[in-house]
Amino acid sequence: MARAVVKLPSTVKRGEIVEIRTLVQHAMETGFRRTQLGEVIPRNIIRTFVCAYNGKEIFRAGLHPAIAANPLLAFTTVATESGTITFTWTGDNGFSVTESATITVE
């Protein structure tokens, strides 16, 4: 089971811009590399990242073979209401990781 680390402030003021940082454990094997015997190492990457704020999608990213291992994504959103922010990474070979964080808006 891959690990994910998410960082965002737990308490913010209404209307404040919040920075969210996400890091997920994944090899991001490109599919272009070969073993020393010349066999292609099959592609194994994360394809999609989705972030939802109280169930509503606020950020989506498509990932491709040139993206580094253990991808780090940082983005911002505006704090509108208290609730849960969920993060989902999906990819090749049925890869799926979900992480969530709570945010309190004052």
Binding site: R3, V5, V6, K7, R21, L23, A69, N70, L72, A74
Partner: peptide, 17 residues
């Protein structure tokens, strides 16, 4: 900055493992 923050330092995955 990547090293300093445990939320961006990928080495933390190995520490957790």
């Amino acid at each position: 900055a990547m090293q300093d923050d445990d939320a961006t330092n990928p080495g933390v995955f190995w520490v957790l493992d």
